[in-house]
Amino acid sequence: MSQPVSHPDPTAAPRTSSEGPPSLIRATGLRKSFGDFEAVRGIDLDVPAGEAFGFLGPNGAGKSSTMRMIAAVSPPSAGELRILGLDPATHGPQIRARLGVCPQEDTLDTELSIRDNLVVYGRYFGLPRSECASRADELLRFFQLQEKARQKVESLSGGMKRRLTIARSLINQPDLLLLDEPTTGLDPQARHVLWDKLFRLKQQGVTLVLTTHYMDEAEQLCDRLVVMDKGEIVAEGSPLALIREHSTREVTELRFGVGQHESLAERIDDLAERVEVLPDRLLLYTDDGEETLARVHERGLEPAAVLVRRSTLEDVFLHLTGRTLVD
């Protein structure tokens, strides 16, 4: 399947920050309030064509509110927003004509056949029936759903429904694909199949913007991501750069007896850049985990269990957004 990336209408050409590809999303001081509650508190974004861009954050961080504004179905409360170089307040339908949207919850028509879901949806974009039909068949093949084409949506598994929702969002060959938590609730096999498909779309030049709270998903798919917390962007960069910037290279995890961690932490807090105390273990953020472990042993401490590992995006995420539950 070819996904030609047609660039925005030159008459509405977005400003380019440099020589690079044009910005598909540009936001400055973007805000969204619902009554007294401020879901998004002034964020800046710049997503060039061809990038896979991620929003990471705990529930309630403002990811979905931001996605809805980008999808041109939620007017910003303040700030400037340009999608494909156009203002969503005045050009909503024109923007949406060139977007693909995979919402957090499936909005498939459960009583229609799988193929009809695609064909009927393509009609909303003004595609002729014959074109809808041929694109539907192509998408069903790409997403390995062709054998199910005549079945009702109700008969599909969760993973298949997600694939169908993404297939549907591609019926208009969008310039920009928005995915709100694309793999939440799926089993590992289904997630990997979906990642494979998304990766292939990305290679075909489709610009992907996704929200997730799975760190592995963000590392797999995103060229660049922002971490959102309480409506603000708290970090931005590639997955590797974020780890480098907000965490150490390695982490040494030490387990002692229950209740000992708090007091033991004081005896070793000079051995690592940062020591985090959890109820069941100590985390020592350090550039050389084995070396740090040796020093711990030197001080006569014998942990019940030890793990030396690389820092992950999850460490960054928990460091930036905290370990407390938000909802």
Partner: peptide, 10 residues
């Protein structure tokens, strides 16, 4: 949620 799907189009 049929309408939610529709409103994501033009």
């Amino acid at each position: 949620k049929t309408y939610l799907g529709m409103v994501a189009t033009p």
